[in-house]
Amino acid sequence: MSETQIRLSGSGGQGLQLAARILVSGLALEGRNISLSQSYEPTSRGGLSRSDLVVGSSTGYPLVSAIDYLVILDQIAVENSLGLIKNDSTVIVDSERVDSPPDGAHTTISLALIQTAREIGNVRAANVVSLGVLAGLSGICSQKSLLQAIRDTVPARFIDLNLEALARGYALVSAEKSKDTQLTAVS
């Protein structure tokens, strides 16, 4: 299987590190080799936060250099990724918190990720809504493995919330695909 580079980015406190850990746990169930790195500020909330994943590295270099799938949950995270986006990258941005997504020939998908989390009762679940969107679009990890990964990773009282968030993420992709034929080609 070929190499895939993924970045989950936003501001500190949006759960990007946890979302990446869930994805890594899901990929482990499917026997994929990964490298996971991260960057965040020395504060528990705010500031640029990102989690980078190289799945099935072809060179052995563990950090991202050309991102295939980029999730941006806050405008603060846009600039940091500009040099890493390719023409065939897919950039998933939150429609509420990202006013100016990166310009370029790549595919940009703006979705109500945070609003969706709010609708299911907890704005902090936007990370897992995003994970559902990412997985739905990329097919990098099966929904079954991600459901198991959530059960393995998330504190018991938040499991149901996160399972719903994941499902809502997949649903956003389905809704988007039905109105945009180009997206079907991407997936």
Binding site: I34, S35, L36, P62
Partner: peptide, 9 residues
């Protein structure tokens, strides 16, 4: 810091 915090298989 990179490899201290890096997760690898």
């Amino acid at each position: 810091e990179v490899i201290g915090h890096l997760v690898e298989s």
